[in-house]
């Protein structure tokens, strides 16, 4: 039988994290400062795949691994658009997703921001002109920021978020 009390007295069972890198840490601290100033401590992000090739989702998911661990910087990914401040749209908007994309955006409370992540979301990418897509996210949503890339790296996505925070701060001042 394990004595619960002895567990409490032992030192914590955590390992030294050797995965941090200075550039990401610096970027994260800047981001945290802006998030604190504009959103009062944290932002809630809803990711929406409107027709990507899934590479961008994989990179957004990577933001939660121990290398980035973006929750430290006040960034959380939420399950419902009703809890979200920011919508990250990935992929060209397909006809089959168009209605769902609109409904997701409408479900978000205002004020709300939209970021197009990846070349396809920015302007349709290689799919521009295909019968099956409307084009980039801006065809049906008001896009506040674009993060190009095929796909953008996790660091580039963080830089994009930082740029959005700075722009939102400008808007707040006005």
């Amino acid at each position: 039988m394990v004595n619960a009390f002895s567990c409490m007295l032992k030192s914590k069972v955590t390992e030294n994290v050797l995965v941090r890198n200075d550039a990401i840490e610096k970027l994260g601290r800047l981001l945290k400062r802006e998030v604190d100033a504009v959103f009062g401590g944290s932002i809630a992000i809803r990711e929406l795949d409107s027709g990507s090739d899934n590479a961008t989702e994989i990179e957004i998911n990577a933001l939660n691994n121990a290398f980035y661990d973006v929750e430290r910087f006040g960034i959380s990914f939420v399950a419902s658009p009703r809890h979200a401040d920011v919508l990250l749209v990935t992929g060209a908007v397909t006809h089959n997703m168009a209605i769902a994309v609109k409904k997701t955006y409408e479900a978000m409370p205002s004020p709300k921001f939209v970021i197009a992540v990846g070349d396809d979301a920015c302007d349709g990418g290689i799919f521009a002109g295909s019968y099956a897509v409307l084009g980039g996210a801006e065809k049906i949503l008001p896009v506040d920021m674009k993060i190009p890339g095929n796909p953008p790296t996790p660091a580039q996505i963080l830089e994009g978020l930082l740029a959005l925070m700075r722009r939102a701060k400008e808007g707040k001042r006005k």
């Binding site: 089959n96 769902a100 295909s130």
Partner: peptide, 11 residues
């Protein structure tokens, strides 16, 4: 499925 149909083959 097929919400993400992007028209790859025609493209």
């Amino acid at each position: 499925m097929f919400y993400k149909h992007r028209g790859i083959e025609k493209l």
